[in-house]
């Protein structure tokens, strides 16, 4: 999982590019890595353009990541969900929890507009 900080908007926004699948085999890796990312910033974007398969354990870890960011007064936004993953979020009603954007640019702009407000 690639992680970088975007400083183009003047605010630290962490962007993590998720791999092609997150399931019971590799979701613990995300869970372990996330606290380190949170130390750098509490505003995060998960770039899901490569993500094609997400199972219940992966979804559980992403929801847990959201909870941790909210606890630190931040937010976790999702960007570029594939149709298949979007169905999963809709089916499980997780869509209502997340701020979902068509691409990472839109997610970063959403952070900056929220900051202005």
């Amino acid at each position: 999982m690639e992680f970088r900080i975007d400083t183009s908007t003047g605010m630290n926004i962490g962007i993590a590019v998720l791999p092609g699948r997150i399931d019971a085999a590799n979701s613990p890796l995300l869970q372990q890595a996330f606290p380190e990312w949170l130390k750098k910033t509490s505003n995060l974007v998960f770039d899901c353009r490569q993500l094609d398969l997400l199972d219940s354990s992966g979804l559980g870890v992403i929801v847990s990541c959201l909870r941790k960011t909210i606890e630190r007064q931040g937010d976790l936004k999702l960007a570029a969900l594939s149709n298949r993953v979007a169905i999963l979020f809709e089916l499980t009603k997780a869509k209502r929890l997340f701020s979902i954007h068509p691409d990472t640019g839109a997610a970063i702009r959403a952070f900056s507009s929220e900051n202005k407000e």
Partner: peptide, 19 residues
């Protein structure tokens, strides 16, 4: 969209592909 999702079990658990 024509996209399909396989519901592997009641909890949407898909087959585990261990690295």
């Amino acid at each position: 969209s024509g996209a399909t999702l396989m519901m592997e079990d009641p909890h949407l658990m898909s087959a585990i592909h261990q690295p």
